[in-house]
Simulated assay, not measured.
Amino acid sequence: MKVNFYTSQREYHEKKNEFDSAIQNIIEKGNFILGEQVSKFEKEIQEYTGAKYAIGVASGTDALIIASDILGFKDGKEVITSPFTFLASASCITRHKGKPVFVDIDEETFGIDVSKIEEKINEDTVGILPIHLFDQMAEMDKIMDLAKRYNLKVLEDAAEAFGMRWKGNGNCYSHSGTIGDFGVYSFFPTKTLGGYGDGGMIVTNDDNLARLAKSFRVHGATQKYHYDFIGYNSRLDTIQAAILSVKLKYIDEAIKKRQKIAQMYMERLADCEYIKLPIAKGDQKQVFYVFNILAEDRDGLAEYLKKNEVGYSIYYPMPLHLQKSFEYLGYKKGDFPIAERVSQKIIALPIYPEMTMEEVEFVCKTIKEFYRK
């Protein structure tokens, strides 16, 4: 049996008429740049997440870059974040000549170890960039407390966390991205809410930050051909907005399907002594964007999965502090031992709403066969 790590075709064929109609409508009207579907989708995101403002941009990476610029994560100022993440979570700081300051991760959640943040704060620190990674939101209560005490800005990298909610110390759940000064989402095709191309979103509850984000995405214009800032050309494509609006209608159903698959993985693999299953900390609602395990002989398992036509991915094979692009920061091997250790064992199994129970069974069976060899 062949099991793809991800496929978009099943979802497309299930809702083909809706997708085709949404795309055709835009082509016929010819309103391709910041068309009415973008405004409609932004309002839908506001309603779903509870954010006061939502500003569509061209990608999750652009969302991080623009938000970092506005928040002052630049010109030698320091921003505390995790080394165990995608490049964009830190490159958005370095692009503006800011300095990422890494702290190690929690071995069970793979997210930033909040207990290690305060010791890194100094007079040059201007912000914290927590990453809601995989299926776990960062401990936002503690992060926001630190931000308040030290007058720091918080940019939530929720690129992988659309749909995640955190209760913390409050009486209700807060959607990822809506707790800090800015939050960002990515609509890369594999995401929980993914388009048929690139796309991103900036969310905020601050009137002035929203005004700046709307300006920065169109070259810094405050009105046509009037520029108060040097901004960016980064606008959510109208066709992608229309596709995402269709998908958003079914997002809760899709998350439930992901949760069912994740539960099945946990039940079927619970007795395998060579792997460690994911653990969630805190009162939160998971979406299972990916399903990671820590595996003994990870590379051997990966090769066996490939041989048996089971898709997988490795998020991430090398922490950022060991990447050549960040050599200038002066970190060395051993500085963040947990991130380094996790990167040698982590592997992501297939998980998407259209995956069948037979496929999940086959993945589990294949993993167990490898360790019985």
Rank of each mutant, 00 (worst) to 15 (best):
E11W: 10
K15D: 01
D20W: 00
I27D: 07
K29M: 13
L34N: 15
E36C: 09
K43I: 15
E44T: 10
I45R: 14
Q46I: 07
A51W: 15
T61H: 12
D62S: 09
E78W: 00
K97N: 02
V101K: 12
V103E: 05
I105V: 15
T109W: 09
I112Y: 00
D113H: 02
S115Y: 00
K116H: 01
K116R: 11
E118G: 04
K120W: 00
V126H: 08
I131C: 04
D135P: 03
D141A: 02
R149P: 00
D157Y: 04
A159L: 01
G168W: 09
G168R: 04
S176Y: 15
Y185L: 06
K191S: 05
K191R: 14
G194F: 07
G195H: 07
G199V: 12
N205W: 15
A210G: 12
K214Y: 08
A221G: 05
Y225E: 12
D228E: 12
S234E: 07
D237C: 11
T238N: 04
S245A: 07
V246G: 05
K247I: 01
Q284S: 02
F288G: 00
I293S: 01
E296A: 06
E303Y: 04
N308Y: 08
V310E: 11
Y312W: 14
E327R: 01
L329H: 12
G330N: 11
R341I: 08
Q344S: 13
I346Y: 04
I346Q: 04
L349C: 09
P350W: 15
P353R: 15
I367G: 05
E369N: 12
F370N: 12
